[in-house]
Design a protein around this nucleic acid. Sequence first.
DNA 1: GCAGTTACGCTACGGGTCGTAGCGTAAGGA
DNA 2: TCCTTACGCTACGACCCGTAGCGTAACTGC
Lengths: 208, 208
Amino acid sequence: MSDTDPKATRTGRPRSTAADAAILEATRASLVDLGWSKLTMSDVATRAGVAKTTLYRRWAGKNELVVDAVAVLFDELELPDRGSLAADVQGVVLQFAALLERPEARTALMAVVAESTRDDSLRHRIRSAIVDRQKRLVLLGRERAQARGELRYEDDASAAARNADLIFDVIAGAVVHRTLVSAEPVDAEWASGFTSLLLLGLAGAQAG
Amino acid sequence: MSDTDPKATRTGRPRSTAADAAILEATRASLVDLGWSKLTMSDVATRAGVAKTTLYRRWAGKNELVVDAVAVLFDELELPDRGSLAADVQGVVLQFAALLERPEARTALMAVVAESTRDDSLRHRIRSAIVDRQKRLVLLGRERAQARGELRYEDDASAAARNADLIFDVIAGAVVHRTLVSAEPVDAEWASGFTSLLLLGLAGAQAG
DNA sequence: GCAGTTACGCTACGGGTCGTAGCGTAAGGA
DNA sequence: TCCTTACGCTACGACCCGTAGCGTAACTGC
């Protein structure tokens, strides 16, 4: 979560875990109220009841702080087994969409991605803190579909990985683009249309 | 381009169109060198050889300026007829991807979209300046496919519009996500895999 | 207990950007 | 020539950044 992880027991006063929680909570609150561009470190410190220097002792700057603050939202993602691949895909889509309805996520996600185009370490942080958490759901859905016999197990491991990457980019990309660029709601109707398009494509790929 | 358009002839000294061009050019150069977050109005003004006040006379702020500066890149988008829907889709994908290779576009696009989540007027500006220019290609590709008989003409106009919106979000979203979030290249191989997935989905929708 | 070590709150600071006001000058139109 | 608008320039208060320095708080090992 923070930059340094206190492996084993260290000497000296330990870092306040309560401060960690308060800071991340304050960051989300500030994102809701002010949005990414007007969020300042001073404001977060004030909201958290913490000195500004304490923030800089744990995070290099606004980018890293916001990534960690938003990352916990992606821990809530779950994918109950709905019995079919179609229902599971629709579930994933609606989960992503629900997350993007939250103003903290809306304003922060694209902003940190934009920053990451010029900052490799930030990009890796986003990947492990956010993207991988999303991707879990896609991989889980595939496993279930294979167990059900809806998708076949692939022989070539690297080809399977490429395929999963493709499907993940299609699902996540479409939902994000619909929500943030087109600024149209991802409701049940859209999710249904998207799901059938994707599944027909996958079915065709299985056949061909 | 600027905020006010001089409809009809106005009295007084006209705005320098050379300054317009110099400012937008300087903005793109600054995006390349500094990136979105470190780009400042003062820097752009200096690069353009223009007073800072001149920028504020034409654009409300950094957001609007960058949108206009990047928008012209999307005018270069073209879609030569490659003879089949599959080839045309692949063409669109590679066009989008090539645009996102440019550092000005990479750093600016996601940033202004992030800003637009809290600024409706900015969102509309992005739509008309950027998104609609992309969407043209998708609509053009559909028309050609219909003329070739690869896709059937749809009766319900609103359903057709929803469908085009869906396909646009899928294509643009997938390419953007692949490029900026997954940070993997959109090469011919990926484009080919994506295209076949999409087309199989469309083919299935035509049949079902 | 006592020293050693690390975290915290607080204050203060130089450096930078923002967006605007005010002024004199330049470039067109009636 | 008068009127109107645009331009360059300077200066300004407000704000945020990221860091340094200090005294104090909390926890560990002896």
